[in-house]
Simulated assay, not measured.
Amino acid sequence: MTRIVIAGAGLSGLSLAAHLAVMDHRHPVIVVDDGRDPLSAKAWASWSDRPGLLDAAACRWFDQIRVHVNGTTKVLRLGRYRYRVVRGGDLATAVRRLTDPLRHFTFQEGHVDRIEDDGVVVDGRHLRARWVFDSVVGPAEEPPADALLSFRGWRVRAERAVFDAEIPTLFDFRTPQVRGASFVYVLPDDAHHALVEHTSFMAPGAAADEAAQREALAEYLTEVVGAGRYEIEREEHAALPLRAGRVERRNGNVLTIGARGGLLKASTGFSYQRVQRDSAAIAESLHRHGHPFALPAEPARFRVFDGVLLDVVMREPAQLERAFGALFRYRTAEPALRFLDEATTPAQEWRLFAGMPAATYLAAARHRLVSS
């Protein structure tokens, strides 16, 4: 019987396990993880216009968002979309509900030393497999990073009731732009508690200025939100390389999944919904074709769009606010979210691009296409 090994039990590994569990097959599946990066402290936000397999893992749902761009604050409904928040522990619980009743699913603790075409080496022992899905090692060569997405978030308790529990702030540009394009994201729990996150687009290899990030968060809470006294309950931070180039995901019988497989969207840093679609496509390919490689081709133009935006923003940070202002200028956020979901037509895209400086973006596009 074919054995499938999933290396890593993070977002992509668990999501793939869930989608495999609902497919009608009896191939033994082993999920290997060393437990060094616990899910308990993780959470993902995403938007979707349709039900999903792991919707039960979502702890919050929103039907509108707030944005502050080009000097104006707007509350936008999401149309057919909904914005959801999934915590790591809830995701793990939802996946185990699907896999625990199945005898051919096994979760194994162990460190993946390396990945080979016929399996994985776990703590020095070779584990044979027909198909390997890798979220921990990654391909031998990755495209260069176009930018770095650096974020620092505070989970705060504010003295005053300043947060709107029903409306997250997707981006607010009322924060200093002197060190690059930056905005603040606010995910509320209730009127007094929220995750307030400072996000910056930086040049590849640049180091985040931690003091400046904390200063920007403090200034936002005090002067923009008017929180009064507040307590920082937890701080979290990360820096994600953003790559618009295509990742070569397949190496023999190994398929790279998750962020290492290029599923982190280069222009936004969001990955949750992209991972869900990819996991469903892999499971469908195994079911229909007996292998995991019959995946839908992605339209190449969206990687070009992402790369062009990052090229422009790295040279002219103020262009990020202008771009977001153009995308979210409609009465609902649905047109922008559909574009970021890579589900728009070229005609819809041209309408969205109106309001952006055409010469700036066309020059960046020519340079990227010529040098690729």
Rank of each mutant, 00 (worst) to 15 (best):
L337T: 08
G205L: 05
R125K: 12
I4M: 01
R246A: 13
F270C: 08
V254F: 01
V196D: 09
H291N: 14
R301G: 03
H198P: 00
A216K: 10
W61E: 15
V313P: 00
R160K: 14
V156T: 09
E159A: 15
A208Y: 06
T360R: 13
P188V: 09
W350V: 12
E342V: 04
G180W: 05
A365Y: 04
G205M: 08
S182L: 00
E159D: 13
E342P: 00
W44Q: 05
D146Q: 09
V31T: 06
V156Q: 05
Y81L: 11
F183T: 06
G13L: 05
D118E: 14
D123M: 05
F163V: 09
V247S: 04
G8M: 03
A259L: 12
T73D: 12
F302M: 03
H193G: 07
P28S: 11
E298I: 05
V225K: 09
L149P: 00
A244H: 05
A94T: 00
P168K: 08
K265G: 01
V31C: 05
A283C: 08
A326C: 12
P317Q: 09
F305K: 00
L217S: 06
H192I: 06
D189W: 12
V75W: 06
V162S: 07
V304W: 00
M23V: 07
P357K: 08
H193N: 11
T93A: 15
V313E: 00
A140P: 03
E233A: 12
R249S: 05
D146W: 08
T199K: 07
R243K: 11
V95W: 00
V132Q: 02
V304N: 00
T345V: 03
Y230E: 09
T222F: 06
Q213E: 14
G180I: 13
G153F: 14
D63M: 06
E321W: 04
R130K: 13
A56Y: 05
A238I: 00
G290I: 06
R331K: 14
G52Y: 05
R114E: 15
R103C: 04
A239G: 10
Q177D: 07
L242F: 05
R84E: 03
R288F: 08
A208E: 13
R3W: 02
A147M: 09
R301F: 10
A7T: 02
H367G: 12
W154M: 09
E298L: 13
V122S: 03
E223P: 03
V224Y: 02
V136T: 13
L98E: 01
G252N: 07
G79F: 06
A283R: 02
A239D: 11
E219Y: 11
T106F: 01
D189V: 15
A94M: 04
L240R: 07
L149I: 00
V186E: 04
F353E: 00
R260E: 07
R80L: 10
L98I: 01
V186S: 04
Y220I: 10
